[in-house]
Design a protein around this nucleic acid. Sequence first.
DNA 1: GTACGAGTTGAAGTCAACTTCAAGTCAAGG
DNA 2: CCTTGACTTGAAGTTGACTTCAACTCGTAC
Lengths: 143, 143
Amino acid sequence: MDIAEVAKHTGVPASTLRYYEKQGLIASVGRQGIRRRFAPGVLDQLALISLGQAAGLSLDEIRSMLLPNGQPSIDRQMLADKADEIDALVKRLRAVSRGLRHAAACPAPSHAECPSFQKLLKAAASGALEKRWRRPGLKLPYK
Amino acid sequence: MDIAEVAKHTGVPASTLRYYEKQGLIASVGRQGIRRRFAPGVLDQLALISLGQAAGLSLDEIRSMLLPNGQPSIDRQMLADKADEIDALVKRLRAVSRGLRHAAACPAPSHAECPSFQKLLKAAASGALEKRWRRPGLKLPYK
DNA sequence: GTACGAGTTGAAGTCAACTTCAAGTCAAGG
DNA sequence: CCTTGACTTGAAGTTGACTTCAACTCGTAC
């Protein structure tokens, strides 16, 4: 497959594929003239990368899960740890969501007078919402 | 309060407070000599900013929720929409977490042969995990 | 044989949210 | 008066994951 075909199948732009190759996340199986050729297995590798990103892994971390041949070799403990991390995040997010909903439904004329909104603010200020995180991490959908 | 005091109370570094002021997210109430003085209300504003960030809002979006005086003026519909967005994210994250856990517990000798891992990969590839997002968004905890 | 479209390269640019830096300004203590 | 230490400034640097760019090389079609 050439780069455009991989891009079409996966939705990953050609520029990103070249970037991933430079980063050692995927490999081409040679050239036809000057053009890269990819084995079909690259589609699985890209799926794995997608999955890792959805799990909040950096490309570096994802690379560390790949053998030189591109086969995944994943530390099961690491998977479990990541799952724990995600669960903790989910817990926080659900608290935020509950708070937002309550604030949205709150009948006070302005949020300044809404007790549940005040409580939310207090929680945010107290760090219960984990104010300051250290990694760039998970992306949110735009819409 | 001077900037160090605000920093101490909120955990927000002084450099960030200056940055927020430049961005119009908070305001100082004048100077004592060359130094900024903040009204206590700035603590609430910072809590609101924290909350917004926890909800995945950009600083731009957060600013759009603030009146020029710093009082929040929040569109309740927007809150509800944000809550929906977060719930959708939570749903995806829980799927990822479940998948990771299953893969971690999977008895197959290598992940290449684990059926549930394959299924996860397939889901990732099919876009069920929402591969390509448009906003920088939510940060993950480092630990 | 030459024009075209799709690929190639390395380098540089983008984005958000900060942080870091050098150089300067103060207030208070000794 | 002089040092110290906390603050000030604008400008530049950081991070990760890409994207964009100009300049170049192919294979194919006309």
